[in-house]
Design a protein around this nucleic acid. Structure first.
Length: 214
DNA sequence: GACCAGGCACATC
DNA sequence: GATGTGCATGGT
């Protein structure tokens, strides 16, 4: 927690998930669109969707696939992601109210399994949706988390560790708190972006100072 | 022109 | 389980 607090003091609240309109559906859509793709390009795709009036799960389902593909093209893999997006939209319309409500650990596991059963939703996407769209207490592992874990938090093998194992390590070390999970993940991404710009990891002075106190 | 970016599905060993 | 491949765009 000490590092979390220093990062928070240094970078301030990150307020993830970054949203244009702030709706839960936009977070779900963003989670699918950002797969192996720079966030800048996700923003382009989202902007296209909004400009075309495709601003809801209903609208995504009502949009013919070829048109949807054109709109999300900047986010790459548009043939796959367009289909994933419609699958996610149908699921969202079915489960939105249920998933936003607090639930037991067992129910959270069940919801995670349901999401994982969707084509195009893997572990990271499922956890991003659960945490950032629905506010459920689950920690997201992604490329940044792995990188910063391996390079800076001295978690041996974090880069290639099984997703579940690394997630368990982070969650064991943190209070079970949605706010902490979302902010800490976002702060680690910020730290990583700050310090890992180049291959070989040229850690910058301010970042070094933060880590030295860890 | 290579390499990377907030993955995932599927095949194969 | 671990590893390899296809999917596609845009920035550095």
């Amino acid at each position: 927690m000490a590092l979390y607090e220093r990062l928070y003091a240094h970078y301030g609240p990150q307020q993830w998930w970054p949203c244009r309109h702030g709706g839960r559906w936009e977070i779900v859509a963003g989670a699918v669109l950002t797969q192996n793709c720079a966030w800048r390009n996700v923003e382009r795709a989202l902007a296209n969707l909004y400009a075309a009036g495709v601003d809801s799960a209903d609208a995504v389902l009502a949009t013919p696939l070829p048109a949807l593909q054109e709109l999300i093209r900047p986010a790459g893999f548009f043939q796959q992601k367009s289909a994933y997006l419609q699958t996610a939209a149908a699921f969202y319309l079915e489960h939105d109210n249920e998933y936003a409500a607090p639930c037991s650990t067992a129910d959270l596991r069940r919801r995670r399994r349901e999401l994982l059963a969707l084509r195009g939703v893997g572990q990271e996407t499922a956890d991003s949706i659960l945490l950032y769209a629905f506010g459920q207490p689950i920690f997201v592992i992604d490329a940044y988390t792995r990188r910063v874990g391996e390079r800076h938090l001295e978690i041996a093998g974090a880069a290639h560790m099984r997703y579940d194992d690394l997630q368990a390590q982070f969650m064991a070390a943190l209070p079970k708190d949605t706010q902490v999970y979302s902010e800490y993940h976002a702060l680690l991404v910020q730290l990583c972006k700050d310090s890992c710009r180049k291959k070989g990891c040229g850690v910058q002075c301010a970042t070094l100072e933060l880590l030295r106190k860890a």
